[in-house]
């Protein structure tokens, strides 16, 4: 069975881009969320194998969402989507329990490698 992914990003363009990359690699995108609140809610309902999580979003930021998702499911695999210059935020997310991170602008090969590696763990 193909692994399932939930994409969380407030920008539609970013969501589409990640979705394309993952689809080409045979990974099933089962849901999308525009902010942390929606992410927490959808994670609970879809239980995906992996989440890609943007950091800066309205309503609830990605770091809070990581904390809440891991609070409910300590086994959740979450990859942070970061921009350059956001080191402290990424570190905070990793400390909160996120597994890995990818940096925008995304290189398809890197995204797939990171997702695969995280799924294997």
């Amino acid at each position: 069975m193909a692994p399932t992914v939930l994409i969380v990003d407030d920008a539609l363009f970013m969501r589409m881009m990640i979705k394309d990359i993952l689809k080409n690699a045979g990974i099933d995108v089962v849901g999308e969320a525009e902010n942390g609140l929606e992410a927490v809610d959808k994670y609970g309902r879809l239980s995906p194998d992996l989440v890609t999580m943007d950091i800066v979003m309205p309503e609830m930021d990605g770091i809070e969402a990581v904390k809440q998702i891991l609070g409910k499911d300590p086994g959740a695999r979450i990859i942070m989507c970061s921009a350059m210059g956001q080191q402290p935020l990424v570190v905070e997310a990793l400390e909160a329990g996120a597994k890995d991170f990818i940096v925008k602008p995304f290189q398809p090969s890197k995204v797939i490698e990171t997702v695969r590696k995280t799924l294997e763990e």
């Binding site: 350059m84 990424v90 570190v91 990793l94 890995d100």
Partner: peptide
Amino acid sequence: LLKSVRVFM
């Protein structure tokens, strides 16, 4: 990219 975060990991 973000080498310092890799170092952190």
